[in-house]
Structures are given as structure tokens and as C-alpha cells.
Design a protein around this nucleic acid. Structure first.
Length: 442
RNA sequence: CGGAGUGUGGCGCAGCCUGGUAGCGCAUCUGGUUUGGGACCAGAGGGUCGUAGGUUCGAAUCCUAUCACUCCGACCA
């Protein structure tokens, strides 16, 4: 993309509010999004690209774990929620709407009822289980006090998956699959997300975990054993049908202490060797639950067993805050100069700065780099504007693409361009071919 | 929902106390000089001062109402 043809309203000045958290400020400065109302944002082209990249990674990892994608609407019928009893229970956070026929609707804060309704309509036999359906869709929760930009918006984009199993043992496996899939997902997104035992809700048991990304601005206080940070993710080759491996993936993390302030156990924490005690702040980016027959009972989501009996299915739900992750990733990965995008979610694979677009030789080399990186699928952002050096470097640094290629008269004379890695700040002069190769390998 | 505060060109702000017909910086446009780390000179465009009432000869400024947004606390992907 040529910067001069793109829509990316970068601004130096942003509100003087000192307390605004880094990610929100950076998203405003780089023109990733614009607030339209309290907790409601437009995603401008740069922000939208990142959102879509995260969505795609989440999709690939869900698919890999055997979940099946679909799409449910944002508006739901109030009647459906009366069936589960949550229409009254949910409270003022649910945005309720009335249509022209005076029928009750609501802007969905989540989709358990709707997916359960779909499930019960079509699935009648144990032979069709287990089943895991998911979608990525906008949600609305009428937060009392939205804040932190997209991290606590009222309208937000979420991946929510729902599993259906014949019994608890099978549901446990479905849960473990999601647990493993989440570890791979967050790893690919370039963040370290720690699973923590969460409040299991009315069902009880040990099957509810929150996944938190460590960041100073996080809303939750986090206590954990440093060792949990070093456990590697299951990895791409992981076999989701290997039940022993699934159990092991959970156990090798949950054996270490990790809890948010709500569940914190001072004694257990004190038992951790002092040099491994980590007290930090975290942002919740995922939450998984097993809830048994909480919805299938009142909504009669039943299947026939091998014996011909009707039995309520055992359900679980699994959320990832996709739009929140945009902010969370920035919180976890930025410096005083701007964002440092992890490779997989970067809006563009590389930035090209043409120092002298008016000089034919320089422009030719820059054009060449642009053409080659584009051909290599790296989707580069090409700054061929006539701005001065300062603003160009500053802007590219702020946007924080993984690689920067600077093409100027100095280097062109010697047959080299400057290649810079945003994360480390390392710079080196290399040939065009070498620069392309380095970027393409990453 | 309790407490505090703010609405003035695209953005950031001053002006309000003490009414007199709107200003500064950034950004934008034009011309020129510049050009490897956020340049300079000259000129230009752009605002019914959140909205609605009221007081007044006259309201951004005073009064009333209303809407929106922000921040601090209790709750949440």
C-alpha cells in the first residue's frame, strides 16, 4: 500500500489526558480507530487490518481444534432469553430494544441461548456428538463505565465457541481441547497469556479458566509462579485427539500456582520459592467454562442415547475478546516511540521509507523493494510521500511494523538499503536482495 | 449507580469571573527556500462557541433546562 493513497490519519497530538493508557493513546495517534460514542468505536483501515488478522488467527486455531465456524446475528429475541431465565437475570447491562411491532429484542451480550436453540432443533442423536460451534460477532454490553479504549468498550468483537457433549467426561475433553487451542492462539498472537483458575459459577468444579496477558495497565492483580510462564505452547503439530496429551497440557500448567486477586491464596503463593514469585497485573483476554446442563435443562436441548433415552447435553462456552486483544497486544508490546507489532498481527509486514522520492535512482530502488515485498506477500506499507525525514521515521516507528526498509541516496550510491527490526532497533545496511530475504524468512 | 469535571474550526487549548460580535498552536491549502530524525518565510481557507429556552440594546460569557463526553470508586469478553 502506498502511504500517499492510504487512509491513515496519524496525529502527533492526542488528548492531553495523562491518565489515558498507552494502547488507547497509540491507537488514537496511529489513526487505528475513532470513538463515536462512549465505548463505541469505528475501526479505521489500520485498526481494522489488525482486527482481521487476529480474527483470522483465532479462526485457524479454532478450526485446528475441531470447532466449526458459523455466524449468528447481533439481535436476538427476548423470548429466547426468557426460556433460559436470563432475560430477567442479566440486568441493566443488556441492551433491550423494541421493534415497530412492540416485540422485545436485545443486542446480544453472548449467545448461549441462541446456539442452544439451533442445536436442539437439529441435533437429536448422541451420534452427532461431540459438537463445537463457534462464531465471531459483535457483542453489546451496556457497561456502566466504559474505559481503556477498545479494551472495555460497550460494543466489542468476540469469538465465542459452544461445545455440546453427551456427558461430563466427554465435555471435559472438549474443554481441554479449547484450553490447548487457546494456548496456541495466544502464542501466535505474540502474547503470553496465563491460564488461571476462575470462579466456576453455579455448577462448581474446576472447569473454568481465565487467560490473562501480563501488562502493567491490566485491570486484575495477578499472582503466579514464574515457572508457568516458561511452559511452551502445545504447538502446531499438536494432536487434539490425543486425550492423554490434552490432559498433560492442562496439568503441566495448572500444577503451578496462578490466580487473580479474586481467587488469591496468600499461603499457596508464599509456598512458591521467592525467586519465582510473580506479582503483576493482567488483562483478561479469554475465558472458558464448563456449565453442564445449565442451558440444556431449561431449554430442553436433549439427544437420544444409545439406549434410546433422552438426556440433556453437557455444554461449555469459550470466549476470546478479539477487539480487546488489539489493545491488549499493544499494552504488552510497545515502547516510548510507539507500537511494536508481533509479526503475525502486524497490519503490514514491513514499512518502506523512500527518503528521496523525487530522485529517480532512489525512487527506482524503493519501487523495486515495494514490488518485491508485495510479490513475496509481505504486504508492505510504502512511504513515498514528500515529507521530511523526521516525520517519516517518527511515523513509521509509531505505527511499529516489524521491519523498516529505508531507501535513500546514501545507500543507493553504495548499492544498499537500511534494514531495521522494530522490536530490537537493530539496523544494518544490506543489499535489496538480502533485505527481501530477511523479511521474507521472518 | 455515587462523587468530580468538560463541551469553543479536523486535533489540542485560551477567552467566560468583570456581557460589546471569537483567538492561539498543530493540521490543511497556495507560492518560495529547504531536505538522512518531527524545517523556515509569506499568504489563504475553515467555527450559528453541544442543544433549547430565558435575561439584556447586545450572550461563547449571566440564568434555567437538557444532551453528550471524560475522570475517580463498586461490577465485567
Amino acid at each position: 500500500m502506498r502511504l500517499s493513497r492510504y487512509f491513515i490519519p496519524v496525529t502527533k497530538d492526542v488528548s492531553s489526558d495523562e491518565k489515558m493508557i498507552a494502547s488507547h493513546k497509540l491507537m488514537m495517534q496511529t489513526g487505528m480507530m475513532r470513538q463515536n460514542a462512549a465505548g463505541i468505536y469505528s475501526w479505521l483501515p489500520l485498526g481494522f487490518k489488525v482486527l482481521k488478522k487476529i480474527e483470522q488467527i483465532v479462526r485457524e486455531e479454532m478450526d485446528r481444534a475441531g470447532a466449526i465456524e458459523m455466524l449468528m446475528p447481533t439481535l436476538q429475541s427476548a423470548d429466547l432469553w426468557r426460556e433460559s431465565g436470563r432475560y430477567d437475570a442479566y440486568g441493566p447491562e443488556m441492551l433491550r430494544i423494541t421493534d415497530r411491532h412492540d416485540r422485545g429484542l436485545l443486542y446480544g451480550p453472548t449467545n448461549e441461548e441462541m446456539i442452544t436453540d439451533i442445536f436442539r432443533t437439529y441435533v437429536k442423536s448422541y451420534k452427532q456428538l461431540p459438537l463445537n460451534l463457534y462464531h465471531q460477532q459483535w457483542k453489546f454490553r451496556d457497561e456502566v463505565r466504559p474505559r481503556f479504549g477498545v479494551m472495555r468498550g460497550r460494543e466489542f468483537y468476540m469469538k465465542d465457541a459452544y461445545s455440546f457433549d453427551l456427558d461430563e467426561a466427554s465435555a471435559r475433553v472438549s474443554y481441554q481441547k479449547m484450553f490447548a487451542a487457546y494456548l496456541n492462539t495466544f502464542n501466535r498472537l505474540g502474547v503470553t497469556a496465563i491460564p488461571m483458575q476462575a470462579d466456576p459459577g453455579p455448577i462448581g468444579g474446576d472447569l473454568s479458566h481465565e487467560f490473562l496477558v501480563l501488562a502493567d495497565s491490566g485491570e486484575s492483580e495477578v499472582y503466579c509462579d514464574k515457572a508457568v510462564l516458561d511452559v511452551p505452547p502445545p504447538g502446531e503439530g499438536f494432536d487434539f485427539e490425543d486425550h492423554d496429551a490434552l490432559i498433560e497440557e492442562m496439568e503441566k500448567r495448572t500444577k503451578f500456582y496462578a490466580a487473580t486477586d479474586e481467587k488469591h491464596d496468600e499461603a499457596a503463593y508464599a509456598a512458591i520459592p521467592a525467586d519465582r514469585q510473580v506479582k503483576a497485573r493482567g488483562i483478561e483476554v479469554g475465558h472458558i467454562f464448563y456449565f453442564g446442563t445449565k442451558y440444556s435443562d431449561p431449554m430442553k436441548a436433549e439427544v437420544q442415547t444409545k439406549e434410546g433415552e433422552l438426556t440433556a447435553i453437557h455444554g461449555g462456552s469459550y470466549g476470546i475478546g478479539v477487539s480487546r486483544l488489539v489493545g491488549a497486544i499493544i499494552e504488552a508490546s510497545h515502547d516510548e516511540n510507539g507500537i511494536i507489532w508481533p509479526d503475525e498481527v502486524a497490519p503490514f509486514g514491513a514499512g518502506i521509507i523512500s527518503m528521496k522520492p523525487d530522485a529517480e535512482d532512489c525512487a527506482a530502488v524503493a519501487d523495486d523493494v515495494y514490488a518485491k515485498l508485495t510479490a513475496a506477500g509481505k504486504d508492505p506499507l510504502y512511504d513515498e510521500t514528500s515529507d521530511r525525514a523526521g516525520p517519516k521515521f517518527g511515523r513509521m516507528e509509531l505505527i511499529g511494523l516489524p521491519w523498516q526498509v529505508t531507501v535513500g541516496p546514501r545507500g543507493v550510491k553504495n548499492g544498499v538499503v537500511e534494514l531495521k527490526r522494530r522490536a530490537t532497533g537493530e539496523k544494518e545496511d544490506v543489499s535489496v536482495e538480502a533485505a527481501i530475504a530477511r523479511i521474507t524468512e521472518s
